[in-house]
Simulated assay, not measured.
Amino acid sequence: MLEVADIFRIHGPAWRQTVPLSLGQLKVMSAIEQCRTAALGGHVLRCSGCARLEISYDSCRNRHCPKCQASAAHRWLEARQADLLPVEYYHVVFTLPAAISAIAWYNKAVLYGLLFDVAAQTLRTIAADPKHLGAHIGATLVLHTWGSALTHHPHVHGIVPGGGLSPDGERWVACRPGFFLPVRVLSRLFRRRFLEELAALHRRGQLRFFGEYDALADPAVFAQWLAPLRAREWVVFAKRPFAGPDAVLAYLSRYTHRVAISNQRLIALDERGVTFRWKDYRAKGRTRYKVMALSADEFMRRFLLHVLPAGFHRIRHYGLFANPVRRDNLAKIRELLHVTTVDIAPVSDNTSPDTAQPTFVCRHCGSPMIIIDILQRSQPIRAPPAQRGAA
């Protein structure tokens, strides 16, 4: 099966000599190229049932690698199962307009962080309003920066229980069945608060502008550029409630550790470039599923648009689910809902996957496989040699 790693290995070395890439992008390319190869070492295994010998090479564990995220998602979901409540859950999406997405590319850490915080603040503010829900809520937000065609399209997906704690913390306040919060109200507050914070960042000199956006460094030009965004509708939508906790977990398994494109969507690498499947959300029905061909250089450029800043957390919890208070709040809510308390281990979303103990099962007979030798990695994961004109 064609993989992103194949494209990087075949076309990456020449392309890196012609374009400026950040150190983070170079490291991602290197990690994906080396993933599950002899370069990273591995294990020699013997099946305890049929005595078959096998070599298993180690993974790169990079969060942008299509091959590594399935196991990372599985571990994360196991930690989250105990957090689910026996209530309706809703899926809410907050999207940045194209104009702001363009400057977000040069200000990833600042504007992605702002997107998280303003989306969470919007949900909590409207939910706390007695005209709507009148309760303190919790939310889990997941950042995605891509559209299906690998374009830069920052948005956050929110998973939110349909209710919250009353202001005095003594009652569970449920939303109306099938309806969480009014989307229009969420959209207007999200727009206002984001633009206010964006203007404040500009006043403090915390935004950077390059190329065609150079002029936005001037306060008067920036204010003029912001004006149309105040009148435009911003995309916020809420999907119907999930069909129970199992559906919430199924959704989270698809979204929490997703990367810009999976290997399963790749079709071919040939003289036309890279051909892959994508979904056109503006079309309807079966016509929205399409095929696109990009040159290998353009495919790599688009993939690397979505490399996150080092240390940036793409899954965050807010309100009742904030890490310091989540355990106590969930216990309180279960008590109010008269459901059995579940033991919740204090697991961090950012625990290094390197601490997980590998387990191996024979693909032929299903018996456990025993590690009989360890193959040392030949080199650490590092960026390829610096290319000319690197940023």
Rank of each mutant, 00 (worst) to 15 (best):
P368R: 14
F299R: 06
Y90G: 12
F360D: 07
G211A: 12
V361N: 06
F237C: 01
H152T: 00
Q264K: 14
L269M: 05
I7W: 05
D168V: 03
I370F: 05
L226H: 07
H306L: 04
D373S: 15
R282V: 13
H91S: 08
I372H: 14
R363G: 07
A79T: 08
I374F: 15
A39K: 15
L207E: 13
S348L: 11
W76Y: 01
H364R: 14
A345I: 11
A220Y: 11
R230W: 09
R363W: 08
R191E: 00
V183N: 04
V221H: 14
R192P: 00
P219E: 02
R176F: 11
A293M: 06
E271Y: 11
Y289G: 04
L96M: 03
E170Q: 15
L21Q: 02
V248K: 13
H313F: 11
I126W: 12
S101G: 09
R288F: 08
A119V: 04
H11P: 06
F312H: 09
D328S: 10
V342Q: 11
F194E: 07
S148R: 09
P66F: 01
L133T: 04
Y112S: 00
I159H: 05
A247W: 08
L150S: 04
D354R: 15
A174L: 00
T125K: 14
V44W: 13
F116E: 05
G49E: 12
P167F: 13
A345C: 08
I370L: 10
D270R: 03
L229Q: 15
P380R: 08
D6K: 04
R204Y: 05
G24W: 00
I315T: 13
F312W: 11
G24L: 00
R232A: 07
Y289V: 02
